[in-house]
Design a protein around this nucleic acid. Structure first.
Lengths: 204, 204
DNA sequence: CAAAAATATGGAGGTCATCTCCACTTGTCA
DNA sequence: TGACAAGTGGAGATGACCTCCATATTTTTG
């Protein structure tokens, strides 16, 4: 699967050009206003070449996303190495929002393409999910975070944030979601099952 | 905007046929495998007629979504009238997950179309958001829920749940998100600012 | 009730983005 | 340097989307 064969010098150059242009256009938010062919032209590449490297819009997005995810994972590891678990998790999640703000167009574009069912992009999120899982696991070991919820739920919440990028008060709401998640993750000190599941009575 | 002119008997019938077929196909998850033209044929309607009633896939989805939202809002009002605020909110949110489970294809399809930037569908969510806002507001008045987060954050989380329908342990994770949100919403009894915002120090 | 006016229908065909294919160029290896 | 492999680009086939209008159906009017 991950068998990367050595690309010819030439090919690597074109590929980089495509990725660079893609990053730029994603970030500007213009990706969907563009014929895919024209995108090739913009990157200084023929149609055939574009399709050889990236058979679909999704494939292109995946490649861009890959770099993004790698950077975020690095950051996660770094935080985990230098901060107490709970704080590392909090800082990382807050940082995600900052990052999305800084690259709004990119986030929006990726979120849109993610939604086109296919799971291709979801696949690429795995390393990120692993990083979040690690952060959560560490905090659980510390005893600062409950152990009955799992990182998947956090990923869902993050996805919700990323997908809603056009809401009016986005930034504030995004911070709100993070607050809810972080506070919700805090290990319930006493047995205060206040709201929690109302034991799902009668259907309907 | 909401000026509904009386449709000719004939027209109403075709429109209903389209909506019915749409519901069916959405629910089956086959909507995107279908040429829009063919969808018309399936509903027993000519292409022109389809386009007259619903100029785009999004428009069609919006109409279906409208009914869905109306039903959910009714449910919200009903809960609010018969249960303590906090419990009404919890029951409603848990019920949303049940509902999504029962109509997986529909949820997935709508989420996908929502993502295609355009905000058309987001518009249709407003009544639903209002309902959630009301539920939250009531709970805030009760003093059971914090007042610094707002319903928008809850909507984001819900959207995240709906958009992630193809994850392996979806149901469990969805319940997890709801748990986080509900617990996160609980008014912090004492001044226990444990994890909360690390006061956003140095950028990056 | 008949005829006119208004409203709606359906599907043939134009338009345009997507993607394939292959004659040609560029890079690599001995 | 020559020969083979690897890659390129863009013309054109393909097929989905949407428009347009001659025809059909419903409603209104005399």
């Amino acid at each position: 699967m991950t068998a990367d064969k050595p690309l010819r010098a030439d090919a690597r150059r074109k590929r980089e050009a495509l990725l660079a242009k893609a990053r730029e256009i994603f970030d500007a938010g213009d990706f969907f206003d563009l014929r895919f062919d024209d995108f090739a032209r913009l990157a200084g590449v023929g149609t055939g070449t574009l399709y050889r490297h990236f058979p679909t819009r999704e494939a292109l997005a995946e490649a861009v996303y890959h770099g993004e995810v790698a950077a975020l994972c690095d950051r996660a590891r770094q935080l985990q190495a230098t901060l107490p678990a709970a704080e590392a998790l909090a800082t990382f999640l807050r940082g995600m929002v900052d990052h999305m703000v800084a690259h709004e167009g990119l986030a929006r574009t990726l979120a849109t393409l993610m939604a086109d069912r296919s799971g291709v992009l979801a696949e690429g999120s795995r390393p990120l999910e692993q990083a979040v899982t690690d952060l959560v696991a560490a905090a659980v070991r510390d005893g600062t975070v409950r152990d009955d919820v799992g990182a998947g739920a956090v990923m869902m919440a993050l996805h919700g944030i990323g997908a809603a990028h056009d809401r009016p008060g986005w930034r504030a709401e995004a911070d709100g979601v993070i607050s809810l998640v972080l506070d919700g993750l805090r290990r319930p000190h006493s047995a205060q099952a206040a709201i929690r599941t109302p034991s799902r009575r009668r259907g309907a």
